[in-house]
């Protein structure tokens, strides 16, 4: 590793810029270390501790009863009907939200792709829901569904969807549609922005060549646009699915998991177990299960993506 053959050479005072190569392997770490240290201390250390909690009894209500208990929490989970309910709801909540966000987002991106006068202004407005703080979106939608103050139940009544204008958030059979509606509203911009950027990166020559080859609109979409977007779609859908599965704000604010646990998903269940029951051990065990499920999902999707890429 000697940089010089002449070690006696000493750079003069002004040569301090020489740091560049003096430790060429260490310099990037100098810039990275504050971030890495912070992330390790605030995220990874607690992560390891959090996973270890899953095998301990840690409840602030029963402080005497603390200690290692092996897989007891997981055995409890196995028998926990609330857990299964939350798991089903998590699937329902996540996939309905993602599918609606994605298809509406893709539609919007396609419409915006061609471009029109005043598009920049229009775009800033239509992407606005994304900028609204999530707790506020949740509150706003909760208010919209409230028949006292919001119009939605009255409209649904007028359309014959509801028998009378009542708050759907209080009806266990349909309460989940409330947070889902808010989530779709909030999530369309993310998909529209990413897909629009991806669409704009498809070279015009591709479309011109397809036009010369006599492709129909549908053929152009299915044979050119979609395959080009596929890798991007898989990634964004994966990131979004994982994010939404973890995302508790809307449900926590709008329904707190109720009524009768009809909107309880795993992440709200974890939060409420930790926050209201202060049973950190059980909350951690449930989050470990959620983590494992998400890892399985992400792996499957990435495998699928590899196949996609090979086909392309």
């Amino acid at each position: 590793m000697s940089l010089t053959t002449n070690k006696n050479f000493a750079p003069d005072q002004k040569g301090q810029g020489w740091k560049i190569f003096k430790s060429p392997k260490l310099e990037p770490f100098l810039y990275l270390s504050p971030s890495i240290i912070l992330i390790c201390l605030v995220i990874f250390v607690p992560l390891v501790i959090g996973i270890s909690y899953a095998f301990q009894s840690i409840s602030l209500f029963r402080p005497s009863d603390t200690g290692w208990i092996g897989f007891e929490h997981f055995e409890d989970i196995y028998q926990d009907r609330k857990f299964y309910k939350s798991l089903r709801n998590t699937f329902w909540w996540t996939f309905t939200s993602v599918i609606l966000q994605f298809s509406l987002g893709l539609g919007l991106a396609m419409l915006l792709k061609a471009g029109f006068k005043g598009q920049k202004f229009f775009q800033a407005l239509i992407f606005l829901p994304w900028a609204v703080p999530t707790f506020l979106s949740a509150l706003t939608w909760a208010w919209l569904f409230n028949p006292v103050i919001g119009p939605l139940s009255h409209w649904m009544f007028a359309l014959g969807i509801l028998d009378e204008p009542y708050n759907i958030l209080a009806d266990p059979s349909i309460a989940m549609y409330g947070p889902i509606a808010a989530n779709v509203w909030f999530g369309i911009p993310f998909f529209a922005i990413t897909l629009l950027a991806a669409l704009q990166s498809i070279p015009d020559e591709m479309y011109e060549a397809a036009a010369i080859d006599g492709a129909s609109k549908w053929q152009v979409f299915s044979k050119i646009t979609l395959p080009f977007l596929a890798p991007m779609i898989v990634i964004t859908v994966m990131l979004r699915t994982v994010w939404i599965a973890n995302f508790a704000d809307f449900i926590y604010v709008m329904t707190s998991g109720g009524p009768a646990n009809s909107t309880q998903i795993l992440s709200t269940y974890i939060f409420l177990t930790a926050f209201k029951k202060l049973d950190f051990g059980y909350a951690s065990a449930v989050s470990v299960v959620l983590l494992v499920l998400l890892l399985i999902f992400a792996t499957l999707l990435l495998k699928m993506r590899q196949k996609f890429v090979r086909v392309n």
């Binding site: 992330i39 995220i43 992560l47 909690y53 840690i58 994982v242 992440s267 974890i270 930790a274």
Partner: peptide, 27 residues
């Protein structure tokens, strides 16, 4: 530099796992 991919990977992972898992330890 050596380890760049690993560090990027670590940063990506933080965007993926349920942050709720660390809420109790952080508390």
């Amino acid at each position: 530099f050596r380890g760049k991919k690993i560090i990027i990977g670590i940063m990506l992972i933080t965007q993926m796992f349920p942050l709720l898992i660390i809420i109790a330890p952080i508390y």
